[in-house]
Simulated assay, not measured.
Amino acid sequence: TAIWVRFGEATLATLSAFAAAAVGALVLGFVLAIGRLSDHAWVRIPVGWIVEILRAVPVLVFMLLLYYGLPVIGIRLSPYWAVVIALIAYNGSVLSEVIRAGVESLPRGQSAAGYALGLRKSNVMRLILLPQAIRAMLPVIIAQLVVTLKDTALGFIITYPELLYFARQL
C-alpha cells in the first residue's frame, strides 16, 4: 500500500506541474501573440525576439539552467518551480505562434467589418478575431498542452518527484 500512496503522490506532482504550466503557458501565449500582432514596431519586434529565443531553447536545457544555473547568482528555485517556469516559457512561446498564425489566417474582411462598425483594434481582436481563431486552433492548442503534460517527465532529471522519477526509484 505504501507503493500506491507514493504512486498517487507522484501522479499528483505530475498533474500539479502540468496544471500550473498549462495555465501559465496559455496566458503567456496570448500575451506574446497580442504583442506579435501589435501595429507598433517597438512592441512587435522585441516580443518577436523573445518568442524566437524562448522557442529555440529546449525545455530540458531551460530546466537545467533554472535549477542549476540560477543558484550561481544567488537565486534558488525548487524543482517544482524550475519545471513549471521552463514549461511555461517554452510552451507559451509555441502557443503564441499558434495563436498569431490562427488570427492571421482569418479573412481580412473579418477585421474590416469590425472597423466598419466603429470598433477599436482591441475590441476587433477580442470580439471578432480571437473567438473565431480559437475555434480553429483548438486542436493544435490541445496537442501542445499534451506535449506540456509529457514534458513534465523531464523534471526527473532535476529531481522533481513526478511519475517517471518515482518509476525509476521503484
Score class of each variant (00 low, 15 high):
P71D: 14
V83E: 04
I85W: 03
Q132A: 08
W81G: 09
K121W: 11
A33Q: 04
P58C: 09
V83Y: 01
S122P: 07
S122T: 14
L154W: 05
G8I: 04
V27N: 11
R76D: 08
N91E: 06
K150Y: 09
R100T: 10
L164I: 14
V146F: 07
V147M: 11
L15A: 10
L64R: 05
A22H: 04
S111C: 01
R55S: 10
A2I: 12
E97H: 08
L117R: 08
Y80I: 08
N123R: 15
A116Q: 01
V103G: 01
W4I: 12
I3G: 09
A167N: 11
L170F: 13
I75V: 15
A33R: 03
R55F: 10
Y160G: 01
A82C: 08
M137W: 05
L77K: 08
R135V: 15
D39K: 15
W42K: 02
D151H: 04
V146G: 11
I158P: 00
A56S: 15
P161A: 12
T159G: 07
A13G: 04
G92K: 03
A25L: 03
V124Q: 02
Q144H: 11
I99F: 14
R76F: 07
V83K: 05
M63D: 04
S78P: 00
D39P: 12
A113C: 04
R135F: 13
L164E: 10
A25V: 04
Y68C: 11
V31N: 08
F156Y: 13
K121C: 01
I88R: 03
L170Q: 14
A10N: 02
E97A: 07
W42Y: 12
G74V: 12
V51E: 00
G118W: 06
R108Y: 00
P131H: 06
I157Q: 09
L106C: 01
V98E: 09
R168W: 10
G114P: 00
A133N: 05
V98D: 07
G118E: 09
N91L: 06
V124P: 01
L15E: 03
R36K: 14
E97L: 07
I157E: 06
R120C: 07
V83D: 03
E104H: 03
A10E: 01
F166D: 03
A86W: 01
A56L: 10
L117G: 05
M125D: 02
G29T: 10
V5G: 12
V57C: 09
